[in-house]
Simulated assay, not measured.
Amino acid sequence: MQPEVSETLAYLELKIAESQLSSTPDQLSTETRAQVSLLARRQFQLEQKILASDEAQQVFLPDATLEEAYQRIQSRYETDTLFAEALSNAALTPSGFKAALSQEMRVEAILERVSSHVEPITEDAAEIYYYTHLERFQLPERRQASHLLITVDDDQPDSDPRVYRKLCALLDKIKQKPTRFDKLVLRYSECPTAMNEGNLGLITPGLLYEALDKALFKMQPGEISPPLRSPMGYHLLRCDALHPATRQPFAEVSARIIELLTERQKGRLQKDWIRQLGH
């Protein structure tokens, strides 16, 4: 096998393992690695057909575009050494990686060209999609919330009860005068949000730690929770506003729907064109 072919296969194996298995080829079992290798070979053969097509002769990938993509990937690593190690672990050299990346980008450009004459999606078509898929545009109930956090030092046996008592004392002060909450957050909270009055932003279910999440979605605006324990420590949680579950209006999502349907149209054109390559 030619070196450039083996490295392109290694590149495809890496892409498949990462996208489908959230792993790298060297972390896979022997059986799974063999399956990934088979998929990579099929992908390689398909790409060779695409690159040998008449349409491929009309696509040119500038060196500057390739270099920009290569540098963008390399910049994800903290150092050049770490990038080189990642390539080595995937059985790739910098030149082999760049060649495989070039092939991938050329294939993408060819497929984009093949599907460039897709029929525009009309507003009416987008609206039909919207009303036949209303469940996809539901927004869950959301809450605006703030908190005061004091952390617990697990290495100190008395830290947990001491912090709990402190939160109870602060809660008593807040109950006497609720407007004290923001000032007490600024003074006592050990969360970076203290500089913004403890604001946690707009919260959807499942975003916070479980104890906080359960409490928040039972609270009313202005209500303050008892001390709540999380892995970080104890929190006083305030519900600032309630946003009921709602549906996104068509006007807000029409552009996204048109983009989605356009991409689907392109995908169908590309698949039809690829099937014809085998005839």
Rank of each mutant, 00 (worst) to 15 (best):
D153R: 07
A100G: 15
T151S: 05
S88R: 14
S95H: 14
V152M: 01
Y129K: 06
K173Y: 04
A86Q: 06
A100N: 08
K173Q: 15
H117K: 10
R113C: 04
E135Q: 07
P120F: 09
T151F: 00
A90S: 15
E104M: 11
F181G: 05
E104A: 13
S115E: 05
D160G: 04
Y164R: 10
I174H: 02
P178F: 12
K166F: 05
R187K: 15
C168M: 13
K98D: 13
I150M: 05
E123M: 01
S102N: 11
A169R: 13
L186G: 01
H147E: 09
S115H: 00
Q138T: 04
R142G: 00
E123R: 04
P157N: 09
D172F: 02
F181V: 09
S115N: 06
R165A: 12
D124F: 05
L87W: 01
L170G: 01
A86D: 13
E127H: 12
F137T: 04
P120S: 07
R180M: 13
E190S: 04
L167E: 00
R106V: 14
A90D: 04
D160P: 01
P120V: 06
Q176W: 03
S88D: 07
E85R: 13
E119Q: 10
R113N: 06
D154E: 10
L170R: 07
H133R: 02
L149Q: 03
I174C: 11
E127M: 07
E190K: 09
V118C: 14
Y129S: 10
F181T: 10
A99K: 11
F97D: 07
N89I: 14
L87D: 04
A90H: 14
T151L: 01
D182T: 09
L92K: 07
Y130I: 12
P161W: 08
V107G: 03
T132A: 05
D172Q: 14
G96V: 05
V163T: 09
Q144W: 11
Y129C: 12
A126M: 07
R113W: 00
R187S: 08
Q138E: 14
L111F: 01
K175H: 14
P120I: 08
L111A: 04
T93K: 10
R162F: 05
R106H: 08
E119W: 00
V185N: 03
E127Y: 12
D124R: 03
D153Q: 06
V114C: 06
S189L: 09
H133E: 14
S95N: 14
L149S: 02
L92N: 11
A90Y: 04
T122H: 03
S95G: 07
L148R: 03
A100P: 11
S189A: 12
A145I: 09
P120T: 07
A100E: 13
Y130C: 10
P120C: 11
A86V: 13
V185T: 12
E104Y: 11
L139F: 02
G96M: 08
P140G: 05
D153K: 04
I150S: 01
R143E: 06
K183E: 14
Y164M: 10
L92R: 12
D158G: 02
Q138I: 05
T132M: 02
E119Y: 01
V163C: 03
R106C: 10
H117I: 02
R165D: 08
E135I: 01
A109M: 06
K166N: 02
L171G: 03
D158W: 08
V185I: 12
S159E: 06
